[in-house]
Amino acid sequence: MVVLVVGILALAGLTLDGGLALAAKVKANGEAQAAARAGAQAIDLSAYRNTGTLQLVPAQAVADAQSYLATVGASGSVTVSGDTVTVSITATQGTQLLGLVGISSLTVHGTGSAHPQRGVVTVEP
Rank of each mutant, 00 (worst) to 15 (best):
Q55V: 14
A42Y: 10
V120W: 14
A114D: 06
A10W: 06
A35H: 04
S75I: 05
D17H: 03
A36I: 08
Q96T: 14
A47C: 11
S81D: 15
Q93Y: 04
Q93C: 09
V120I: 15
S113Q: 12
S105H: 07
L98H: 04
Q93V: 05
L97C: 08
V3S: 14
V87F: 07
G7Q: 02
L54M: 09
T122I: 08
G30R: 09
A42C: 06
T86D: 05
S105M: 03
S46W: 00
A114R: 05
N50M: 11
R49L: 14
A12N: 04
G99P: 08
K27T: 14
G76H: 04
L56W: 09
G110W: 13
S75T: 15
A74K: 12
T86I: 01
L97H: 08
R37S: 07
S46N: 13
L98V: 06
P58K: 06
Y68K: 02
S81Q: 14
G13L: 08
A59C: 02
V2A: 14
D83V: 14
T107G: 03
V87P: 10
A65T: 11
V87I: 10
Q55I: 13
P58F: 10
V120G: 02
V101F: 01
D64W: 14
M1Q: 09
L54S: 06
V6S: 09
P125M: 07
T84A: 10
L69V: 04
T53F: 05
D64S: 14
L16Y: 10
V85Q: 05
L54W: 03
A23G: 05
L100Q: 06
V72G: 01
K27H: 13
L69Y: 01
A40N: 07
V6E: 03
V121G: 02
G82D: 08
G18K: 08
V3T: 12
A38T: 05
L14H: 02
A21C: 10
L9Q: 01
Q41L: 15
G39Q: 05
V101K: 00
R49C: 00
P58D: 10
A47K: 12
K25T: 15
L9P: 02
V5I: 15
I43S: 05
I8E: 00
A36C: 07
Q93F: 02
N50T: 15
I103R: 04
T84C: 01
V57G: 01
I8R: 00
S46F: 00
V78K: 03
G102E: 06
G99F: 03
Y48F: 15
V26A: 15
V3N: 03
H115Q: 14
D64M: 13
G18M: 12
L54E: 02
L14E: 02
H109C: 00
S75P: 00
R37V: 09
A36K: 09
V5F: 13
A12I: 13
T79Y: 00
G18S: 09
Q117I: 12
